[in-house]
Design a protein around this nucleic acid. Structure first.
Lengths: 167, 167
DNA sequence: CGCTTGTTTCACAAACTTGTGAAGACTGTA
DNA sequence: TACAGTCTTCACAAGTTTGTGAAACAAGCG
């Protein structure tokens, strides 16, 4: 007595696994990615049990994954009164935007590189010049990324997607 | 009979290890990163043996790392005639620029997400709409990154760094 | 109040990653 | 041709990550 499949389940699951692997390849926790895209590709919120069922993994694995994901607000937990099980859904604010524009990684690179420039006596030596240029480049990228979110929202508003105020 | 240290060795080595760890944290092979920044922070090209010595690792580890790095032109091998040992140096073209603007990662995301949109019947369902928006965002980022290299070079030319024609 | 259903925690096992030592290959020198 | 120095390859070991099963825990329902 399942609801009739609104989507081609096999195709959707293929998307989930492929996208998860692509994320895992760039350092994202594997199981967390699988859970994330499982919820993303569901029309309605899912319980932990449903997620485990769709992925064919243990409840323990789902528990760990949702803990990781909710930590960064990539997933929202919705307690359902009258039921023991919570439901999980995607947040309204696009997590990927926040993820990409979160420039803490570059901030770290810049700080460390700056220390290197000092140790190498500034731009007065070949090595110092090289490291200084790398630092400046990362600084540039960081600045660009900071404004990228604004540019994206402006463009989205122009094309009509996302709407003026999500309701 | 080493050359007198032109830089504070300890400080420089600290930079190498810290930068390498920062790169390793975002998925870059650990040893490759250590080798890369060791060469970067040296005024003159180094042999594999010198790299191994500075890092205190085996020759085998260096061998694997340089193979990885030269594959993507992040490191240049210079055979030295009259000697058995090659030397390694940083390439003239900044590898980090190419690395950041290489958008194959996003291309992959976009392709997979596009498949997901198809499987979810386009924007006609909540799930399809979500995935479509993610796809569009990554598409936007990819476009932005493609022009980022140009903007960086323009800025660098304006500030005088990098010179009109290196070397 | 205790049973039932669903989630979380924890110790462990399987798999993967990564660097080492040793042996082999290549190249220049006598 | 024999030798010495340097790099490369390979099997293995140490460390890390990751998901599982089992048991504890929490909350509705009879």
């Amino acid at each position: 007595m399942n609801v009739p499949p609104q989507h081609d389940e096999e195709e959707v699951h293929l998307f989930v696994e492929r996208m998860a692997m692509a994320f895992a390849d760039v350092g994202f926790p594997r199981m967390a990615a699988r859970v994330l895209f499982t919820v993303m590709s569901a029309d309605d919120p899912l319980t932990a049990g449903e997620i485990a069922g769709r992925l064919g993994v243990s409840a323990a694995a789902v528990s760990g994954a949702v803990r990781y994901l909710t930590q960064f607000a990539m997933l929202v937990r919705e307690p359902v009164k009258g039921s023991r099980s919570d439901r999980y859904r995607m947040p309204d604010n696009p997590w990927y935007e926040a993820t990409i524009t979160k420039t803490t990684i570059y901030k770290n690179f810049i700080d460390i590189a700056a220390g290197g420039v000092d140790a190498l006596h500034g731009r007065n030596t070949p090595a110092g010049e090289r490291v200084a240029e790398m630092r400046d480049f990362f600084l540039f990228v960081q600045e660009e990324l900071e404004s990228l979110g604004d540019r994206w929202r402006a463009r989205r508003a122009a094309t009509g997607h996302g709407g003026p105020a999500g309701g």
